[in-house]
């Protein structure tokens, strides 16, 4: 049995009196796409932020290739984080930087690439995401869809091994949403990165996923493939994806 790339082992997280994660267990294999679904406010983003180190677990462990994230040496942790990107739910673009500067930022600040190399790479990502010609525009001058794609270009520009997408298609129209899904699929095939996607685009997002996990009441209550979840054999997962609140609540009772 191969070792998972990322593994959540009985992870608990509490904010004051609110217990968000109550013993999460989840394994993510290298080079796969895992989609995490769940109700709004169920802790999906909190789960992602554990991987990137923005939030520390209260109990349990997050393992990266078998090693606890908290016990990695600073060099190992730096190396792991260097090969990872995070696409934030609200994009987190720097409003004082132009679109080009936003995308180029991870390269200008953390690599020794020349200005010409950076320009070439940024323009390549911009072309692939159909956002050419907006180099000098500030995020406030761009539409929601454009901002999303700028954020995606920034996440992809470093050729990471792991990308965490926090609701990458929120606020996009159906055409743009399908575009983003298509791009994730294409880029993932091309570069082979591991992706963890938090999304509400059910069932469209399932087309990308090798693994689907349902987070409910602080625990992963379902793990499986697209076919398994769509077969509707798991009562809670079935109720959730069909959006039946009453059935969903009853199934948990």
């Amino acid at each position: 049995m191969t070792q998972p790339f990322i593994e959540f082992k009985n992870v608990y997280k509490r904010f004051g009196s609110l217990e968000v994660l109550k013993g999460v267990n989840l394994s993510i294999d290298k080079g796969t796409v895992t989609v995490v679904i769940g109700k709004s406010g169920s802790g999906k983003s909190v789960l992602l932020k554990h991987i990137v180190g923005l939030i520390q677990e209260d109990e349990g462990d997050v393992l990266i290739q078998g090693k606890s994230l908290n016990r990695l040496s600073s060099k190992q942790a730096r190396q792991f984080k260097k090969n990872m990107s995070y696409m934030f739910q609200d994009n987190a673009l720097f409003d004082f930087l132009t679109a080009f500067e936003n995308i180029a930022l991870p390269l200008t600040e953390t690599t020794r690439m020349t200005a010409a190399q950076i320009r070439k790479k940024v323009h390549d990502r911009m072309a692939r995401l159909s956002i050419e010609g907006i180099d000098d525009k500030y995020p406030s001058e761009l539409s929601g869809g454009m901002r999303k794609r700028v954020a995606m270009a920034r996440a992809l520009v470093t050729d990471p091994e792991l990308i965490l997408f926090d609701e990458p298609t929120t606020g996009l129209d159906p055409i743009r949403k399908n575009d983003v899904h298509h791009l994730i699929r294409e880029f993932q095939k091309q570069f082979g990165f591991t992706a963890v996607i938090v999304s509400h685009d059910i069932p469209d997002i399932f087309d990308l996923a090798q693994q689907i996990a349902l987070l409910d009441e602080g625990k992963i209550v379902f793990k499986g493939t697209r076919e398994e979840i769509m077969a509707c054999e798991h009562e809670t997962a079935c109720a959730f994806i069909r959006g039946r609140e009453v059935l969903y609540d009853r199934s948990k009772a």
Binding site: K49, V52, L54, S85, Y86, A92, D95, E109, T110
Partner: peptide, 10 residues
């Protein structure tokens, strides 16, 4: 945006 800097190793 500050969290984004952290994730970018800046």
């Amino acid at each position: 945006q500050i969290d984004a800097l952290v994730t970018m190793q800046i």
